[in-house]
């Protein structure tokens, strides 16, 4: 490692360090990132840009595509909300209470991360189809889950749950008992303490968890296509529409839909980030 004068130019960009290997590791990671992620992703936008506007609109904003976006974003949002509620509950119970089997429950929360999506898809279909394990009890009540948007939401709840639990859990665990005790000494009820002290502290993490679950839900494919029924205009999700276009060798159409999906996803994630950054700024955390 040569010091002061030798690497003047590079030094101005990054702060010098005695640890070696920056050039190698940074170069390797940036090169690999560019090759595997950035260039391939750029092709989507380049191809979209190369398409005429009319052509883009014809598939990308067709009625069928619009219905698919509505379905994908709608069910992902619904599942995200369910997960925000129950994910918070699960995290709370795991962090705050003790009960037998807690460790196992804590481990099983990660199941959706580990279970291949196609496996989850066929399993959920086996449960919720009209003659399935659960579906046969719901069917006589007139409740249809499989092959409806409810089924899609169920699949997305499965996929998204760990995102919320794992985002909220550490924040809840780090939240010192002292603020709650302070609230209690000041005469707050338990509910007031929760809504005015605890909830604001964990809200950013909850929002992060929601955003992650939502983003995953919008793009989810494997766990949904089995349970959704795939009826165009009704239960056809946007990722499936891309696959359909591809199978018809309509690459432009597939690209247009992918572009719209990605732009909307990024816009929503960006908005959520802005909300969070504003919150951070305000609380100085």
């Amino acid at each position: 490692m040569t010091a002061s004068s030798a690497a003047g130019a590079r030094r101005r960009w990054r702060q010098p360090s005695v640890l070696p290997g920056f050039g190698l590791t940074f170069g390797l990671s940036l090169g690999w990132l560019t090759l595997i992620v950035l260039i391939p992703l750029a092709t989507i936008f380049l191809k979209s840009a190369g398409m005429g506007w009319d052509q883009f609109v014809a598939v990308g904003l067709s009625d069928r595509a619009l219905a698919a976006y509505r379905l994908s974003f709608g069910t992902a949002a619904a599942a995200g909300l369910v997960n925000a509620l129950f994910g918070l509950l699960v995290a709370w119970v795991l962090v705050r209470y003790t009960f037998p089997g807690q460790k196992i429950i804590g481990a099983i929360v990660d199941l959706p991360f580990a279970l291949p999506t196609a496996v989850a898809g066929i399993a959920l279909t086996a449960l919720y189809s009209p003659n399935g394990w659960v579906g046969r009890f719901l069917d006589p009540l007139g409740i249809k889950v499989a092959f409806t948007p409810i089924g899609i939401t169920v699949a997305l709840v499965f996929i998204g749950l760990p995102f919320v639990v794992r985002s909220v859990e550490p924040v809840l665990a780090d939240l010192g008992n002292d603020v709650e005790e302070a609230a209690a000494t000041l005469g707050a009820t338990r509910l007031q303490t929760f809504s005015r002290v605890i909830f604001p502290a964990i809200a950013p993490a909850l929002l992060t968890g929601f955003a992650l679950a939502f983003a995953r839900g919008v793009g989810e494919y494997g766990s949904v296509i089995f349970i959704s029924g795939n009826m165009p205009g009704r239960t056809e999700i946007a990722p499936l529409l891309i696959v359909t276009q591809l199978e018809q060798y309509n690459y432009d159409g597939a690209t247009a839909i992918a572009t719209v999906m990605m732009l909307v996803s990024f816009a929503i994630l960006l908005a959520l980030n802005v909300v969070q950054a504003a919150g951070r700024h305000r609380y100085g955390a």
């Binding site: 950035l38 494919y221 891309i242 990605m262």
Partner: peptide, 22 residues
């Protein structure tokens, strides 16, 4: 940027390689 693939639909992840090498 490293996290980017997390926010991309798996289907789109396949699509980009079809666009490049199909």
């Amino acid at each position: 940027l490293i996290d980017l693939p997390f926010s991309v639909s798996p289907v789109v992840s396949g699509l980009i390689f079809v666009l490049l090498f199909g």
